[in-house]
Amino acid sequence: MKKKDIPQDESALKNVLREVVYAKDEDGKYTSALSQGWDVKKDALDNAWDDVNEKIEEAKQAVLSGEKSPVYYFKEKTLMDMPTITGYTGFWAITIKRHFKPSVFKKLSDHKLEKYAKAFDITIEELKSPDLS
């Protein structure tokens, strides 16, 4: 890539940083320069977020319809996979899957709820009655 071809498209980096890119200068020697973004990357990232948001929406609907507990919704909302949520809560994956059931979730002690609340950065109240509007 030549230095003059380094893309400067507007992206999520805007107002936060420009990133270092290595490219060739006019004499064919390597140099580094700053890029504020590339549409190809921006679209990949936007797409990934669309997918995440869709999953969050599905989780929200599943909670509203009584299929899943708020634990499931907040797991999606905070982008956690199983190793991440087990890491933050200390529960086993199989236990967490049980807590996805509204009937099991309703009976959880405050002590257990507290672990989830901490993992999701919310209060126990928000966990029990999430804002799904």
């Binding site: 980096l13 940083l17 990133e19 590339w38 190809v40 990357k41 679209d43 990949a44 990232l45 797409n47 990934a48 997918d51």
Partner: peptide
């Protein structure tokens, strides 16, 4: 398409 996007993101992400 999402999978291809992931390749690009691994390739070019900060």
């Amino acid at each position: 398409g999402l999978y291809l996007g992931q390749i690009v993101r691994m390739q070019e992400e900060i």
